[in-house]
Design a protein around this nucleic acid. Sequence first.
DNA 1: GGTCATCGTGAGAGCGCTCTCACAGTCACG
DNA 2: CGTGACTGTGAGAGCGCTCTCACGATGACC
Lengths: 343, 343
Amino acid sequence: MTAQAATGSATLEQVARLANVSRATVSRVVNGDRRVGEAARAAVEAAVKELGYIPNRAARSLVTRRSDSVAVVIPEPTGQVFGDPFFPRVLRGISDALAEEEMQLVLLMPQGRADEARVERYLAAGHSDGVLLVSLHGSDPLPADLQRRGISVVVGGRPPGAGVSYVDVDNRGGAASAVRHLIEGGRRRVATIAGPQDMPPGADRLAGYHETLSVAGRPVDERLIEVADFTHEGGRAAMQRLIERAPDLDAVFVASDLMGLGALVALQAAERRVPDDVAIVGFDDSPLAESARPAMSSVRQPIEEMGREMTRLLLQSIRRPGEPPRRVILDTNLVVRQSSAPM
Amino acid sequence: MTAQAATGSATLEQVARLANVSRATVSRVVNGDRRVGEAARAAVEAAVKELGYIPNRAARSLVTRRSDSVAVVIPEPTGQVFGDPFFPRVLRGISDALAEEEMQLVLLMPQGRADEARVERYLAAGHSDGVLLVSLHGSDPLPADLQRRGISVVVGGRPPGAGVSYVDVDNRGGAASAVRHLIEGGRRRVATIAGPQDMPPGADRLAGYHETLSVAGRPVDERLIEVADFTHEGGRAAMQRLIERAPDLDAVFVASDLMGLGALVALQAAERRVPDDVAIVGFDDSPLAESARPAMSSVRQPIEEMGREMTRLLLQSIRRPGEPPRRVILDTNLVVRQSSAPM
DNA sequence: GGTCATCGTGAGAGCGCTCTCACAGTCACG
DNA sequence: CGTGACTGTGAGAGCGCTCTCACGATGACC
């Protein structure tokens, strides 16, 4: 035969006939219901194997009113911002965790308001069992809207409002560990290049910087703080301004590796040796950090783990609706390289 | 009421009742069938609006035997290799094109053999209407397998075998334009750092280098050719070897920006000025190229467009099965920056 | 005015599955 | 031995939709 129906596969009915049992029994075996006799189970399993039976998801969904799929929403700006592969890594974590549960990942990448409306309609229609939102620029009304409609949502990254489950990396703690490391390395004037303050990671990393200085009894000097936009060029320009304003700085904590690379360029242009004159620590531990010269110390984030944890939280929320929102903060760890060698 | 069923929404039946027509008529209106009277159509549209009716995909799929979804398969190594955001960009293109057709994107990221088997089972079951495979390291038996089963497949990047539709970027042409640009800039000894030769982009870019030299009547000097692995460190080491072996080189075409950055580091270490002593052109036009110092010329690839074109091809193949495979090669364009200023 | 195509519409079957309910069989208990 | 609990199984309804077929109404044509 030519076109052996792609959608082909056998049906429950056929399996039942071959195994000499009812459809109901086959369904029980397939779905792992324990109240099935030994003989029947064996017969069904043999028949399933012989026919290469795979359940039809549509038929199942129709009656269970579950889709066995999870929507992952990645709004426009998020995919762009990062030079390092943040986005693929979260997806990998999510994909992993979903595969274990035999659930499907439906990816939605709205661009522009029209698209966002479409996405919202799609989600509101209940076409997915739950929603994971990977958003790093806060202020998205989507999660709250969906939750109001009774749809489970988990956000990746700290959302601005409360009331929604989320998983975040310990940005504050990570920043703190970087700054502490610089201080312990004998640095006296530790500057920082922060990220945009309307983005939670930007704000939280700066908070970690402040906190650590104050714990260490160091005064916070405004001249040692610059805010940039998480880009390479932004980091370069910020470092240049810092050098001009505070020529005596001897260390800098940069809130992203990409900015860190830019900062490195500015330091070289200003003929400051790294790490001899100025130590530098980045954030993200992207591949760039390792291959910079000198190799750049950086705060590593468990990004895949974030995806996995988001998924776990979501599945729990789907299975036990109505529970209060939860949050999970994942530890970072500092990877020390040459750029922050002690004085 | 408390739990206002998330999956709620109205049914065709209810819409039909409200509009005073049959279910069939509602179905026709919803699916854009033109043979419906003006009055009936208006009544249905009003009812749909009033009830906020959204068709149930599962029910529809069950009868049409279409899923209105497309699977995108990204095998393990592909997501990792690239420092620049190749992978999110293809996805964005695909997502875009699918959204226009109201189709869903199901993302599959198998890791390891067990996962790949699961993916294959899923696809073979016909749970998606077609498959897009984004693979850059060739030699995957999946596309051929699926096609044999009568499932539409389109591959992103040139696959090693024939017989499968694919969309690729004109790697050869892009490399040629880069090399031509260097020659026209007055460079006499143009070297290259190629990518792995078992990856089609690696091989094709090197072919473009060869081709252009021969067209220009230049001898191909084996000492001017190094193969690396698309990483920063690989590029650096390769450049170092080139300088040692052919100290008189005055230009280098590097098959990826990440390697190009590495090469830049090696050139600086060897105290060769860019572009005065040595000109350099990369490939990918990633954000890194722009922010390098000096800013690096690079071959830009239309990656989103690749995703869109893959989707178009796939949808055509789904709608008209049995047509012969097609291939689409997308043009690149050279972005000239400081690193390759003429002598 | 009869014949035939065309158009708009409705009735009804059925996609493949789950799940409730009923029922026969088995066993423990009084 | 009757009663009740429990276990394994099957019959059958029905999830929401599409699509075929049939049918009445309309208009074109001879």
